[in-house]
Design a protein around this nucleic acid. Sequence first.
DNA 1: CGGGCGTTGTTGAACCCTCAACCAGGATGC
DNA 2: GCATCCTGGTTGAGGGTTCAACAACGCCCG
Lengths: 160, 160
Amino acid sequence: MRWLSADEQRVWRGFMTAVTKFTEHLDRQMQRDSGMPMAYYEILVALSEAPDRALRMSELALNCHSSRSRLSHAVAKLEKEGWVQRRACDSDRRGSIARLTDRGFAVLEAAAPGHVTAVREHLFDVLTAEQLGSLREISQAMENGLQTECAKARAEIGEF
Amino acid sequence: MRWLSADEQRVWRGFMTAVTKFTEHLDRQMQRDSGMPMAYYEILVALSEAPDRALRMSELALNCHSSRSRLSHAVAKLEKEGWVQRRACDSDRRGSIARLTDRGFAVLEAAAPGHVTAVREHLFDVLTAEQLGSLREISQAMENGLQTECAKARAEIGEF
DNA sequence: CGGGCGTTGTTGAACCCTCAACCAGGATGC
DNA sequence: GCATCCTGGTTGAGGGTTCAACAACGCCCG
């Protein structure tokens, strides 16, 4: 068992602190100014970028890194608000297709500027161009590492 | 209103994806292997590092970047499990002091290796020494930016 | 065809977090 | 001393997420 060195600990804690405070800030900003959590905003964004502003639930779940269950609950709520509508899928009768309504799109348009400002202010404005480059590489490396992990997890499930 | 460029979008989404998957992985690992969320683990860690393994609630909240409310709920639960004990503070009768019990310490010791392994595997093992250096700088810069933000927020509250 | 098997999506319970309200105790100013 | 304000901590309600279970459907192979 290899523990973390003092240096590693410092990097680790600094990273977690920064990330936690950052995401909490974004979440609070979104909740305060637009009355929804970040997760819901991401759903609206994903839908707005899809052709016809509609996506199957499973696609949508992939695009916003959400579990199916979470998405189901979230879309149910968004539907109650009238921001999203669900309809059956023609080609696959299990399927459900979520579609962004005009009202939902308007909400998204209203929420976007504040969100982008917050991101710019606390990410892009505090980092140099070089640091941004590093951040891109770092994110990529972490994601690769996690994907192999997911593959491992699936393999394990397959083993039992 | 300045939007994000295509490059900025890529960095931004890549970063959020990596961070989200990473923290979700850590959370799931902790919940699965030790039956508690990461937030609770952090409380145990903070207490274990304090003199006499005890801290006032407000200190503890600072050390693990938690709101007082959240901490209060969490410690209540940890106390029910018998991992933490609360007692009154002598010098300030409002105060409450949380102390890690031996059982709580044992739980922490049992949980730590799996957690450290997960962190090593998905953070330190996938990054070069140079990238770690960058990450330290980046985290520092972000945290500084967020601290000025908190100060701004407080100033605004003061203004109104 | 028909019985497994994997996939899609939903649901309800349990759990955690957030927010606002609140109480109790210190600190300050008159 | 006392009114006022601030701080430390708790509580309850409301809402979001997770997990396990489930229903319905597609797929495939004998």
